[in-house]
């Protein structure tokens, strides 16, 4: 109970809203940058996904727990503040005109609830693979001890595509290296034999997920609502945490809008490109 003692103070509650909000905004930005790697192709995206899922180890658990704690406190505090605020204004005006309050600031609790619903669906889909499991259960095979190389003289290679053997061996440029052709790409392998590994095919999951128009539309709507929320949220965090300087604050308000619009554009560019067949079209 000592954990939620801060709820007795409205300013401390707002402080918790701002701090957890900042954590979540930083995650949203990082997640966006990570997701954009889908434009770099399957290899880049899958090795990024592998890095997050396998290489981070305990750190991933800590980050996930941190995010869950931030979300939980963000929600508890907002719901408590909403009820407090409704109680502080029991009689509404018959006629109400707003001067500075915008649609985005007046709908924070509603966009928040919608984002939570979207987030739940999004995690069930792409993180846990509960919804549309056919997207999730895909495996990507790749060569671990190799670097992808481009132009290689094809005549030096014995093409074994179609046979049981996964790879075709070429002439080695040094004693310790050999060239292989694997699934249409060239690799320079250290040692004689390529080591074949498996990893979760996050790229295929994203492509097949977003190739369903309904899933894409839901995602686009969810992200636009998130943008609405962030438009008010980012500048609001500065004000709550006590940074309001007459010179910079107007710029922070504009910056808040720019960041939220940019985030929306970056996020929705992924399902739109996939629907248009610009990314992963041949999958």
């Amino acid at each position: 109970m000592i954990l939620i003692n801060y709820l007795k103070s409205t300013i401390l509650s707002k402080f918790v809203m701002a701090v957890t909000g900042v954590i979540l905004v930083l995650f949203v930005i990082g997640h966006c940058v990570g997701n954009l790697q889908v434009f770099l192709g399957k290899d880049a995206f899958n090795s990024y996904a592998y890095f997050l899922q396998e290489r981070l180890g305990e750190l991933l658990l800590i980050i996930r727990l941190g995010l869950i704690v931030a979300v939980v406190f963000h929600i508890i505090t907002s719901v408590r503040l909403k009820f407090l605020n409704l109680g502080a204004k029991p009689t509404k005006y018959q006629v109400k005109n707003y001067v500075k309050a915008r649609l985005t600031s007046r709908t924070m609790i509603w966009t928040g609830i919608m984002i939570f619903a979207f987030l739940t669906y999004h995690i069930l889909h792409f993180t846990m693979g509960v919804v549309h499991p056919e997207d999730y259960n895909k495996t990507d095979y790749y060569v671990t001890n190799a670097v992808s190389v481009e132009k290689v003289d094809n005549s030096t290679l014995k093409d074994t595509e179609g046979s049981d053997e996964c790879c075709a061996k070429g002439t080695a440029t040094t004693a310790k290296e050999s060239l292989i052709k694997y699934k249409g790409s060239m690799y320079k392998v250290e040692g004689d034999e390529p080591i074949l590994s498996e990893r979760h095919d996050a790229y295929a999951m994203v492509i097949s997920g977003f190739q369903k128009p309904l899933v894409s539309i839901l995602y686009i709507i969810g992200v636009i609502i998130l943008g609405f929320h962030l438009n008010h949220a980012i500048q609001s965090a500065f004000q709550t945490l006590g940074y309001n300087n007459p010179k910079y604050f107007p710029k922070i308000i504009v910056g808040s809008t720019i960041i939220s619009i940019l985030l929306v554009i970056c996020y929705i560019s992924i399902p739109i490109s996939i629907l248009l067949g610009l990314v992963g079209g041949r999958l």
Binding site: I11, L84, N85, V99, K100, S236, Q239, T240
Partner: peptide, 16 residues
Amino acid sequence: EKEGFGACTNFYECEA
């Protein structure tokens, strides 16, 4: 807070 005033949600209507 004892008087029952609400919490600030940065609408900035007060300033206006």
